[in-house]
């Protein structure tokens, strides 16, 4: 039942009509659900690791996704949106312009609609068309292997890479918990989007360790400077580094003696190298290793780990480094699809 709590929490944000349907799902489906999708005038869908399920008009679960289906109305989307915002849209304005709102429990609700722009910046979102509730789950222990390797490598900075929905945030959160429990060291979680610690009224909704401070909502680049100035961290954990400004701040933090544990959207080393901020950080020599996550069918599972140097040097790698056994693997780099510990040790 405990496994269903995140689903119950996330489905609680939907309006009464949709909630009634979602609550009828069997426990094993609730436990496996990754996303709840509400799209205007289209069927209500729940995403599982390997497939989507829809509902019949009477609210029963439908695995075929054909025939007459239970559709989400505009009113359902609006009701859900109001609940997600706690009936205070103005409070979440900045988050909404960033595309999502984080709700109690750390669940992220993605918002799609029509953007209102002024001076090239998104200032508001109107005519909502769909909402995507991503169910956050705490997987205690999922990062233990990674943590052991990081500890073995004297807590050298580490990068987590993977495509969306592969559990980067989940793994990073568990790593934050483990780093935040290291006696004599201080950890700071930079939770720009409120996903890692998911603080509500100042209290983290997820366990991030007892020696951990959380900066919620701060722009990452500023947060690094602020944390260095006032919180004296040994480790900084943050997710989705995406801009040059952030990379610059992180690099400067690294030269102040702080270890960084970051995530980035990239499925392969080739993709990672295409991302300028990530490539810049890897090139700086501050990272000990890079872990690539498996696909969305096994969220939070590390596919393989390489040393940062191997990733940078893997010029010949194509889009699917795993299938072909590219140059990085041939060169005997730290690739270890089946034995991540060995790769970790080498990092």
């Amino acid at each position: 039942m405990e496994n269903n709590k995140p689903f119950e929490q996330a489905s609680g944000c939907t309006g009464s009509r949709v909630r009634a349907v979602l609550q009828r799902l069997p426990p094993h489906v609730k436990a496996a659900a990754q996303e709840i999708r509400l799209r205007c005038d289209r069927p209500l869908a729940v995403r599982l690791p390997q497939r989507d399920i829809t509902f019949l008009p009477n609210g029963q679960m439908n695995l075929l996704n054909t025939g007459p289906l239970f559709c989400v109305t505009r009113e359902d989307v609006e009701e859900c949106f109001r609940m997600v915002c706690g009936f205070s849209v103005h409070t979440h304005q900045q988050q909404l312009c960033g595309g999502f709102v984080t709700v109690k429990g750390g669940h992220r609700v993605g918002v799609a609609g029509t953007a209102v722009c002024a001076n090239g910046m998104i200032t508001a979102v109107r005519e909502l068309s769909s909402l995507n509730i991503r169910i956050a789950r705490e997987h205690r222990g999922s990062a233990e292997e990674l943590f052991n390797a990081v500890r073995g490598g004297q807590y050298r900075s580490f990068l987590l890479a993977g495509p969306p929905c592969t559990g980067k945030t989940t793994l990073l959160r568990d790593l934050a918990r483990l780093l935040g429990s290291v006696d004599g060291r201080s950890t700071v979680v930079l939770d720009e989007r409120g996903e890692l610690a998911a603080c509500v009224n100042g209290a983290p909704q997820h366990d991030v360790g007892i020696f951990c401070d959380v900066l919620t909502g701060y722009p990452k680049a500023q947060a690094v400077t602020l944390a260095l100035r006032s919180l004296a961290p040994d480790f900084i954990v943050t997710d989705e580094v995406s801009s040059a400004e952030e990379a610059e701040a992180i690099e400067s933090g690294f030269h102040s003696g702080v270890s960084f544990f970051l995530s980035v959207h990239a499925a392969t080393p080739a993709e990672l190298k295409q991302k300028k901020p990530a490539a810049r950080l890897l090139g700086s020599g501050m990272f000990g290793g890079v872990a690539f996550l498996k696909d969305r069918r096994e969220p939070g599972r590390i596919q393989w780990i390489r040393s940062a140097g191997d990733v940078l040097g893997a010029d010949a790698w194509g889009g699917d480094a795993l299938s072909g056994g590219g140059a990085g693997r041939r060169s005997g780099g730290a690739a270890a699809e089946d034995a991540p510990e060995a790769a970790l040790a080498m990092c």
Binding site: G86, V89, Q93, A124
Partner: peptide, 10 residues
């Protein structure tokens, strides 16, 4: 109208 729109409009 309270809580239904962005802060400027509000």
């Amino acid at each position: 109208s309270l809580g239904t729109t962005d802060s400027q409009t509000q």
